[in-house]
Nucleic acid binder design. Structure first.
Lengths: 286, 286
DNA sequence: TCGGCGCTTGAATCGACGT
DNA sequence: AACGTCGATTCAAGCGCCG
C-alpha cells in the first residue's frame, strides 16, 4: 500500500497495482496525447489504436481502485486537425463506466447581445478569456476541452451547490430553495481562464487549478477521502487537494515534471501556513 | 427539380431524391431526437440503432446533393440521462464526412474571476443566459449543444471574420491584419442565448436564428448559393436565409410546424419590407 | 525514369503575453 | 504604446521510397 499525499516517480500502470480495490474516492486527470511510441509500419492508424488500448487499460485499472460511489473526471482536449481524439477516448471508457456528466471547459468565449433576427443589429461583444490563434482558414480557434464525468453506476449524488454560482434574480433565493443560500446549479459549461504562458510552459498540457478543484468539490468533500491522479504532470491536482484539505496520490514518469510539482507543493504549503496564521481555515473550504 | 425558397411538406428522404447531385452549398439542420418508432420488442437498444441508421441514410443522401466544397452543419444536443446521443450521431457521420470543426453552442455560462489557487477567493460571478433547471442530484444542468461541421474533404476555406468578434488588444489590429478592421477569429465556443419560452413552445428543439446565421456566414456568402435544411421545423433556417439574402430549400413532415414556419416567414418578409423602406439593404449583410 | 504517396522539415501564422 | 517571442499551431515544400 502506498502512502498518502505523495507523488510517485512511477508509471501509473505499475503504481496502480499497489492500490487496494475500491479505495479511491475521486480520480481527476488529464492523460497525455502522444505517447512516445515509434512505429515503422506504414499506412495504418495503429498508433492511435495503441494509444486508445493503453488508455483503456488504465481505465480498467482505475475502475478497480475506484470506490463504488466514486467519480472519475477525465479531462481531454482535441486539436483542430483531429477533433475525434477526445471522443475516441470517451468511447473506450464507455466500455467500463457510465457517463454521468460531460462538463465543457470553456477557455474563451464572446458574449453578444441577443440576435433576435428582427434586424436589430448586434451592438457589442464582450470577449472573456484568451486563446492561441490558429493559422488556418479551415479551423476556428479551439477554446474548449472536455471533462467527462465517469462513474460506476451513473448515480453518484453530487454536491452541486459546492460549486454553485450566484442567482441572477435574487428574488428566487427565498422563493425556491429550502436553503437560503444565494447559490444555484452552475451548469455543465465551465468558464475557466487559461493558465499564463509562464506557468503552462512548464508542462504542455497543464490544466488550471480551478478545474480539479471544481471536480473534487462537486463530488463532495468527505472525511478521509482520497484523490488519485495517474498523470500528475506538474501537480495541479495535488495542489488543489492541499487547498481542499483532502488526501491525494499521484504518479508521474517524467522526473522534471515531478520536480516542478514538488517545488510547487512546497511553495504552496508554505504560503498556506503563512495564510493560516492570520486567517481561519473555515474561509477556504466554503 | 425543386423550386428554391420553398418549404416542402415532405419526408426529407423523399424530397432529397429530387435534388440534383452537388447542387447544395450549405446544409444546416437539427435532426429530431425521437422518431416515432414503435417497438414491441423487449430489452434491446434497437430503437437507438434504427435511429442512427436512419440518420446515416440521410447523411449519405445529403452528401450526394452537397457540393464538393460544401458544408454540413449538424446541430445535436444531448440529454443528461444520455450524453452519448450526439457523439453516436457524429460517429455515424464519420463514415461519410470529414469532421472539420466542432462548434459548441453555449446557452448559459458563469464568468468568474480567475481562481489562481493562492487563497484569494473568488469575488464575483456573472452568469449570462438562462437554462431550465434540472431536478436531479446526479446531473448538472445541460447548457450546451454541439454543432458538428462536416465537409467532404475537410479543407473548406471559411470566412472566419464574417462572424468575427472585436479584438481585446487593439494594438494588434494594425500590426498584423492587412485589413484594418477590428475583427478576429470568434473561436469555436459560441454563446447564443436561449430562445424565449414562447418561441420554444412552438417546437421542442428549435434553435435560435443566430445559429444557422453564423453557420451560413462562416461558410461564406456566395452569389446564388443554396442552403438546405432537411428538418425545417418552424423554419428558423429559412428565416436566417431570408435575412442573409440566400436561397433555401426545406422539408418538414409535420403540418403544424410547417404552418408556423410559413407564418413566421410571412411576418418576417413583411417586417423586412417595412424595414427596407427606411433603411438600405447594405446594413444587413455586414 | 517518372509519379504518387508519406514522412520530415522549415516557413508562416496572428492573438496574447511580456518587457 | 511598441515590439519581440511563442505555439500538445498549421501549411507547403522537399526528400526518399516504392511501383
Amino acid at each position: 500500500m502506498l502512502e498518502l499525499n505523495k507523488m510517485y516517480f512511477e508509471d501509473c500502470l505499475i503504481g496502480l497495482k499497489k492500490i487496494k480495490n475500491e479505495s479511491i474516492d475521486v480520480i481527476v486527470t488529464s492523460p497525455p496525447y502522444n505517447i512516445g511510441l515509434k512505429y515503422n509500419g506504414y499506412k495504418d492508424n495503429k498508433p492511435r489504436e495503441d494509444y486508445l488500448d493503453w488508455l483503456e487499460t488504465i481505465a480498467k485499472e482505475c475502475k478497480r481502485v475506484l470506490k463504488k460511489g466514486g467519480s472519475f473526471f477525465l479531462n481531454v482536449g482535441g486539436k483542430p486537425s483531429d477533433y475525434w481524439i477526445p471522443l475516441d477516448v470517451a468511447m473506450r471508457f464507455r466500455n467500463h463506466y457510465e457517463l454521468q456528466n460531460i462538463f465543457h471547459w470553456i477557455k474563451s468565449i464572446s458574449i453578444e447581445k441577443k440576435d433576435v433576427g428582427n434586424y436589430r443589429n448586434i451592438i457589442g461583444d464582450i470577449t472573456v478569456g484568451h486563446y492561441k490563434p490558429i493559422n488556418s482558414k479551415r479551423f476556428l480557434s479551439d477554446c474548449h476541452e472536455y471533462i467527462f464525468h465517469f462513474t460506476k453506476e451513473g448515480n453518484v449524488e453530487l454536491d452541486k451547490l459546492a460549486i454553485g454560482v450566484k442567482y441572477q434574480d435574487k428574488s428566487n433565493i427565498k422563493r425556491w430553495k429550502s436553503t437560503k443560500s444565494d447559490l444555484k446549479d452552475r451548469g455543465n459549461t465551465w468558464f475557466i481562464p487559461y493558465e499564463t504562458i509562464q506557468e503552462s510552459r512548464l508542462h504542455p498540457s497543464t490544466f488550471p487549478i480551478g478545474l480539479p478543484k471544481k471536480c473534487i468539490k462537486l463530488h463532495g468533500l468527505k472525511e478521509g477521502m482520497v484523490v488519485l491522479d495517474p498523470f500528475m504532470g506538474i501537480g495541479t491536482t495535488a495542489l488543489s487537494c492541499i487547498e481542499l484539505n483532502v488526501n491525494y496520490i499521484g504518479f508521474e514518469i517524467d522526473q522534471k515534471y515531478l520536480q516542478v510539482a514538488n517545488e510547487r507543493i512546497i511553495n504552496y504549503s508554505q504560503e498556506r501556513k503563512k495564510y493560516l496564521s492570520i486567517k481561519s481555515i473555515d474561509d477556504f473550504n466554503g
